[in-house]
Write a protein that binds this DNA or RNA. Structure first.
Lengths: 197, 197
DNA sequence: AAAAAAATTGAACAAGGTTCATTTTTTGTG
DNA sequence: CACAAAAAATGAACCTTGTTCAATTTTTTT
């Protein structure tokens, strides 16, 4: 069997483990048992478990991105709201995968990080920015970019809470509703700032 | 030596380890070495490491709360901004402790969770809510409470990113500035919603 | 001072990531 | 096809986690 097939197999099987049992069950030995390959083979293929998980994570980001670009709405306002809805839904339906993505302790000085994570995140941010540009044409570029960055960072951060049971304890508000309220309050706030200057 | 003294000692020494080297270095054995007590004693005192870290975490929450209630400002608007400033500053200056707090996988069904975490978080939320009530008197209770909850959850989520080097890669905006922009845009957004109804 | 109770200890266990000498498989060549 | 060389796969072994518990030491009680 060639190298790509093994990798593909190991990725698929690992994703099943995570989706069904959670990230804690994705260990080298369990992956070895589930796949039939030895522990050593996993290390030959991926170097180490961190790198393996990094790959799993950017697949998750890719999947999200492809869900987002499917959106067909007329107004930029509707699009932004749909993005948030899809984002929240995706996070909730793939909570284990998202949990793994968010809780991964990456070494950001690593070039690998830029290639795998940053590029993908930038693409998602661009989707938001495009529609925010349409929506608030009075805003200068620099300001608008700051608004978009803060919005994304906030949503991204928020998403990590959506996947935990902690949220249910902190708040009785539905996870999707939280994202919606945040977005719309935030957008209304930008409008004010646009008017002021 | 009596039980409280040992616990106090172990907590203090553990906090030093976390502050200086990060949560990863807070292991039972390293704590044992650093304190002079055996591993067994740590387990006699705290039951398990999770419980030990839980205690560390609510001390962190208490410290934050005590920093917040010191705020002396006239207007509610100023107070809210000062809260956010102090919150961001606290998180940044205690990033390892905050990281440990945020990344702790707690079992929320556990009664212990309610007593230790939820009560403390509620107290912090109350601070925000009190000033938001003054600021937006036109809002009905239910709506206002939703705004406060979402604001806190968002800030709390955001804080977890502030402590990682990931943020620096995602955004060139200063961590405190992110919190400030978020708060003020959000507050402006609430004002709009207040006017509308 | 002896007995009983309580507290402390650290070796030992399971499970995690990781390594690497050994074995197996594949590839290349006459 | 046969044989050598290269490549890939293997899993026992190592170290580090959290955790337990029989044995030991200390404290308290009588």
């Amino acid at each position: 069997m060639n190298k790509d097939d093994i990798q593909e197999n190991l990725i698929k099987i690992g994703r099943n483990i995570v989706q069904e049992k959670g990230p804690d069950f994705l260990t080298a030995r369990k992956l070895s048992e589930a796949s039939g390959y030895s522990v050593g083979t996993i290390y030959n293929q991926f170097g180490n478990m961190d790198n393996y998980i990094l790959i799993q994570n950017y697949i998750t980001l890719d999947t999200l991105y492809h869900n987002l670009i499917k959106v067909q709405k007329n107004s930029s306002y509707e699009k932004l709201n749909e993005y948030i809805r899809i984002f929240a839904e995706f996070v909730l339906q793939n909570r284990f995968l998202w949990h793994m993505l968010f809780n991964f302790h990456l070494n950001c000085t690593d070039r690998l990080f830029s290639v795998t994570y940053l590029r993908r995140v930038s693409m998602i941010i661009s989707l938001f920015e495009k529609n925010l540009t349409d929506l608030y044409q009075g805003l200068e570029f620099k300001k608008r970019h700051a608004f978009v960055e803060v919005l994304w960072i906030t949503l991204f951060a928020l998403s990590s809470l959506l996947t935990t049971s902690a949220l249910e304890t902190y708040s009785k508000i539905n996870a999707t509703k939280i994202c919606e309220l945040l977005l719309n309050t935030y957008l209304a706030g930008i409008k004010v700032s646009e008017r002021i200057g």
